[in-house]
Design a protein around this nucleic acid. Structure first.
Length: 655
RNA sequence: GGGCCCGUGGCCUAGCCUGGAUAGGGCACCGGCCUUCUAAGCCGGGGGUCCGGGGUUCGAAUCCCCGCGGGCCCGCCA
């Protein structure tokens, strides 16, 4: 067979819809095949078969008795014997269908034999150029698990979209113009711009945290004085608590870096932090001080190198590293400001230029297309400070336009608390006449990662950094590997430990819906048992092991197979799962929900592991049965490998 | 004050958009299975007001309304 169907399950659903449609038409019931197709669902229990048609909505619509509907199908099915259905049963308002195993298996094996490791990767008809911007952490401290969630999500959706046939570009936005970078530079300047020791993001991260804490403490102390003077005691308690929290932060830092903390406290004493920081920011933006430009660029470059090292460890790569400063220093900002002034939505808000969305956001088409909150009033967007320097959103508008240069669609992977800002960005683009950009900018939002009982905070230096997480994951995996394979050589052990540790992290971060807040618990993230990355990897290694021991290539020739054993429940279950993989992939890619893949992989692994204990493959005495089983095993191996590839998890040769 | 997200056995989670049959899993707990392709596994067991209350429906974890609890956002911060 040279012809093959890429999606066997889909093929069966279509054929079945037509069959039902035809059966009903014969007794003059007019329902379209597509309406039937849409009603088909999966029964909750195995004894109900694989495909179910609830008849409830048709009873009313056709004003016909349930028995008439059911009987027409059972009669037609037994008369015409469609090859893809083996059984129909009618239960409590449902018409249930059992897929013919032989039909499914023949098509599946033929498809897999043709597609190999492309099985399941159904391509879109019209591939797009898609930009995925993700991670984009401020270059002031090491990446933590929050960034890890962002990076893994961004990376995985990029991989999925690419396999779906799109061309994907991954970009990292280096936010070097923000206040946080200025604070770090401020600290470094007072330490006489030290050379980084160790990993640069960690080195600078400490300086940043201390400097920031000192500044916050001084600010809060001043605020408390003012509140006391004004007699606003109701605000005093809150501010006091905030101060205490920052004092704790500083104490925590002092525990780790006593010398540095004391030095910075000493050097920053009595300084006007705020105006100094403003000066740094302005100097950097206007490039008025060569020294500042050089220092900030050097610091950020070093930190970005640190990011790259970390991201490289978890297999995350970027095509472009876009520096915010490059955008500001280019002519694009002034061009956009000019466009803004010509825009009908331009306004002067509190003495500076802004965009006013009050009329625009009332257009319901705009609300819908930009996915704005239904009734929320979006405030005017201020474009620049009164001193003429740019604001973040202004730079973000420019960056968005740049990202759209050769792209049909841009996906920003950004945490959910930026939802309003992202909605504002889309509105701004529309207001400036960038309609295509506004309508095709997608905010892929995810919830934050918390520590148990504590909010993770980069600014407060309270976080589990990715490097430690990776190290811990790999060392835990190493213990497991050596326990199980005491005789294995050291190099192999370490390689497997790395594969397993990283697999655990990736799977843990991607298997929970992005919309759910994630509480970071070491033992959960580094779980190596069921429902984990290592579990999927282990299952893969087991399947591969059978194929390795078999010693020959599985050729998928459809002669000399035993289709009878496909009736065994465990094998049947595997077969049905395997034909569903293309559908799962398409759904995952269309909805950008990698957790679907994780869930499917878990189910497939469970089923395969049961099969593994119940149905020995290589010891199967009957050659035809053995071949059939081997085809199933080979297909499982391919599907698991394909899923691991999509999730960016390495598929280990052995474990 | 307004907006967004989340709430499912002790803990974590799927299902919710697109209503359908006995709410799937995992961790932890209890009991079995390694002379047979890797026990990171398999088989079995106990444990549930799907946050609460109304409504729509033949039918609600799912849709609508009103609450409750948790998180986040509403800056000339980023």
């Amino acid at each position: 067979m040279n012809n093959y169907v890429k999606d066997v399950y889909e093929y069966i659903l279509c054929k079945l819809s037509n069959h039902i449609c035809d059966s009903w038409n014969r007794i003059n019931l007019k329902v379209s095949a597509s309406e039937i197709y849409r009603s088909l669902e999966e029964p909750p229990l195995e004894k109900f078969g694989e495909i179910a048609l609830p008849t409830f909505k048709f009873l009313k619509k056709l004003s016909v008795d349930y028995n008439v509907l059911a009987e027409s199908i059972t009669t037609q099915t037994s008369k015409r014997k469609p090859e893809f259905i083996s059984k129909v049963n009618v239960v409590r308002g449902y018409i249930n269908f059992f897929i013919n195993e032989e039909f499914a298996a023949k098509h599946l094996f033929n498809t897999v034999s043709n597609m190999g490791y492309d099985y399941g990767f159904i391509k879109v008809d019209k591939p797009l150029h898609i930009v995925v911007e993700h991670t984009s952490a401020n270059p002031v401290h090491p990446l933590h698990i929050g960034h890890g969630r962002n990076a893994i999500l961004g990376d995985v959706i990029s991989r999925i979209l690419a396999k779906r046939g799109h061309s994907v570009i991954r970009r990292f936005y280096v936010n070097d113009m923000g206040r946080q970078v200025a604070i770090l530079a401020y600290g470094c300047l007072h330490l006489n711009n030290p050379l980084p020791k160790g990993k640069p993001d960690h080195f600078y991260g400490v300086i940043y945290s201390i400097t920031n804490a000192v500044i916050e403490i001084d600010r809060l102390k001043r605020e408390i004085e003012e509140l006391k003077e004004k007699g606003r005691f109701e605000d005093l308690e809150r501010t006091n608590n905030e101060l205490l929290d920052w004092l704790n932060v500083l104490a925590e830092l002092k525990g780790k870096e006593p010398k540095l903390v004391l030095e910075l406290i000493e050097k920053l004493k009595g300084k006007e932090h705020e105006s100094e920081i403003q000066k740094i920011m302005k100097a950097y933006e206007k490039r008025s001080s060569e020294k500042i430009v050089k220092i900030i660029r050097t610091i950020c470059n070093n930190i970005v190198e640190g990011f790259k090292e970390t991201l490289d460890k978890i297999g995350v790569e970027f095509d472009f590293w876009d520096w915010e400063s490059d955008i500001v220093w280019s002519s694009i900002i002034s061009k956009i400001l000019e466009e803004a002034r010509k825009s009908p939505y331009f306004t002067i808000h509190k003495g500076t230029s802004a965009l006013d969305f009050s009329s625009l956001q009332k257009v319901s088409e705009v609300r819908e297309k930009l996915k704005l909150p239904k009734t929320f009033e979006i405030p005017p967007l201020i474009l620049q400070r009164s001193d003429g320097t740019t604001l973040y959103t202004m730079r973000d508008i420019a960056y968005s336009i740049i990202k759209f240069k050769n792209a049909d669609k841009v996906i920003n992977v950004i945490m959910s608390e930026q939802k309003l800002a992202q909605a504002q960005l889309r509105l701004a683009l529309l207001a400036l006449g960038y309609k295509r950009e506004a309508y095709n900018l997608i905010h892929y939002s995810y919830e934050i990662v918390n520590l148990p009982g504590m909010r993770m905070s980069g600014r407060k230096g309270r976080f589990v950094d990715l490097d430690s997480l990776i190290e811990e994951a790999v060392s835990r995996a190493y213990l497991e590997v050596s326990k199980r394979n005491p005789k294995m050589d050291e190099e192999m052990k370490e390689r497997i430990a790395k594969t397993v540790g990283l697999g655990a992290i990736r799977y843990a971060l991607v298997s929970v819906s992005a919309s759910k807040p994630l509480t970071f618990i070491w033992d959960d993230v580094l779980n190596f048992e069921r429902n984990s990355g290592p579990y999927i990897q282990y299952t893969y290694a087991r399947a591969l092991n059978i194929l390795r021991n078999y010693g020959k290539e599985v050729d998928f020739s459809l002669e000399t197979l035993d289709y009878g054993i496909l009736k065994k429940p465990i094998i049947r279950r595997l077969l049905i799962l395997l034909i569903k993989f293309p559908k799962v992939f398409v759904k995952t890619a269309e909805e950008l929900k990698p957790e679907y893949l994780a869930e499917y992989a878990g189910k497939l692994a469970d089923t395969f592991n049961s099969f593994y204990t119940m149905e020995p493959v290589l010891k199967e005495p009957v050659e035809e049965k053995k071949r059939t089983k081997l085809y199933i095993v080979k297909t499982v191996e391919i599907v698991l490998k394909n899923i691991l590839t999509l999730l960016g998890i390495e598929a280990p040769e052995r474990m």
